[in-house]
Design a protein around this nucleic acid. Structure first.
Length: 169
DNA sequence: AGCAAGATCGGT
DNA sequence: CCGATCTTGCTG
């Protein structure tokens, strides 16, 4: 298979470019062995003005990593049980991230992290082979659909209605 | 120090 | 629809 590791600077683009572009790319995890999973669902969270984005609270210990430059990993625990895997995007001091919501074989952001053994230890690290987590371009092009982001009813009409969830066709 | 809510999921 | 389960940020 003809794949190419995405360099960290790929993720310096805006999250609204990156989030849909990750559909059909590979999430690669290497512990003892290397596993590749096709990314099937993502969501964009964009800036302090986006009331669904954690950065809407400004800089806090938890959101600090979103202010780093694209290519960093943002992990947090939700409902006391599930680790959420996000990739920080955009320039430094421009808080954005893509939530990886689904991969082939595992639908749901909480299920995929559990299956891959991804937890808090990856937080604030860079996507890289050294970290053991990175993304590869499959070289193929996939069509995707856009829809409303899930689980953010608290964010208000403007933000909860953004079509920033991307799913593979 | 205490509290309410949460980018979820699986079972009723 | 509801509970599990615990971190986080806000309030006082």
């Amino acid at each position: 298979m003809n794949t190419k590791v995405l360099s960290a600077d790929y993720f310096l683009q805006d999250v609204l470019e990156i989030a849909p572009s990750l559909i059909g790319k590979y999430l690669v995890v290497e512990n003892k062995q290397k596993s590749k999973y096709l990314i099937t669902e993502t969501e964009a969270y964009r800036g302090e003005e986006d009331l669904a984005c954690h950065a809407s609270k400004g800089r806090t210990p938890r959101t600090e990593v979103m202010y780093k430059e694209g290519g960093h990993i943002y992990i947090y625990l939700i409902y006391g049980m599930y680790w959420m895997l996000n990739i920080v995007t955009g320039e430094r001091d421009n808080p954005q991230a893509v939530l990886i919501r689904g991969i082939e074989g595992f639908n749901g952001p909480g299920k995929l992290t559990k299956a891959l053994g991804i937890d808090k230890t990856f937080n604030a690290k860079l996507l890289s082979k050294k970290t053991g987590l990175w993304i590869e371009d499959s070289g193929k092009v996939y069509n995707f659909d856009s829809s409303k982001r899930k689980g953010i009813d608290y964010a208000g009409d403007t933000w909860k209605n953004k079509l920033w969830r991307y799913t593979i066709q």
